[in-house]
Design a protein around this nucleic acid. Structure first.
Length: 243
DNA sequence: GCGACAG
DNA sequence: ATCTTGTCGC
């Protein structure tokens, strides 16, 4: 039986083709809740080292609602594309997908650093990843890519809509007082309201929700535990033990 | 034509 | 994102 599966997703590093791909995929993003029984939430983040030559993808899976870390994967691979505003997913998704393949547990919800549909063509990295994996996803950005919004009230938990071309594409959420707000947007299979609620539910004492914060820590600090001994320049993957 | 511009 | 020292504040 030759079950040749149709390629659900294509790939490219050509800017023009990437833009066309985004336009064709954006309509497939679901902005309504289609999620249930959340047992594991994953934080996804990408970092770089060697002046950007090496991409480091990190995924941290936490049990819900205890927020205890149950698994962490760190995957390193050569960087293949430069950073181009609006095409971030084409630079970082390959590494994230490879890291995802190494997980032993499949998360029920993803919190991805960057935008969901709060993107010029409505397909930020969180939406792209959520669609690719068909897993509910939320875009958790630390700054704005596009759209406009009023100032966000100082109270923790307050938020204002982020609009672009007469559409609400996300929400600017105050996760901590006196700290710059976060840009939350639907990634896939979740409404904006639910996305914000999930982020709030994962907050502790920091600006970032735990899944994102934990992934962020591991992705952006090349110290003893993430550093290769020496002489070993061959990129590869490695799973990190907890503890 | 002139800015703006996730990570 | 990453390169970098110290510093202000709870």
């Amino acid at each position: 039986m030759t079950s040749q599966r149709q390629p659900l997703h294509e790939w490219t590093i050509d800017p023009e083709r990437a833009v066309a791909l985004q336009k064709s995929l954006a309509p497939r993003i679901e902005c309504q809740d289609r999620i249930s029984n959340v047992e594991h939430i994953a934080g996804v983040d990408i970092g770089f080292e060697d002046r950007g030559e090496t991409t480091r993808a990190v995924i941290v899976v936490m049990r819900w609602p205890s927020l205890e870390i149950v698994e962490r994967v760190l995957h390193r691979t050569p960087t293949r594309m430069p950073y181009i505003p609006g095409l971030l997913s084409f630079r970082e998704l390959p590494a994230a997908l490879e890291a995802f393949e190494q997980l032993t547990v499949t998360p029920d919800l993803l919190m991805v650093d960057g935008m969901g549909i709060a993107h010029p063509r409505r397909l930020g990295i969180a939406a792209h990843l959520g669609l690719w994996l068909d897993i509910p996803a939320i875009g958790v950005g630390k700054s704005r890519l596009c759209g406009q919004h009023d100032e966000v009230p100082e109270a923790r938990g307050s938020w204002v809509p982020l609009t672009h071309r007469n559409e609400t594409i996300g929400g600017v959420l105050r996760t901590r007082e006196r700290v710059k707000p976060l840009y939350i947007s639907t990634g896939h299979r979740l409404s904006l309201e639910s996305s914000i609620e999930w982020v709030m539910q994962c907050l502790t004492r920091y600006k970032l929700p735990e899944p994102t914060r934990q992934a962020d820590r591991l992705a952006s600090r090349r110290t003893a535990e993430t550093r290769r001994p020496e002489g070993d320049a061959a990129p590869g993957q490695e799973s990190l033990s907890l503890e």
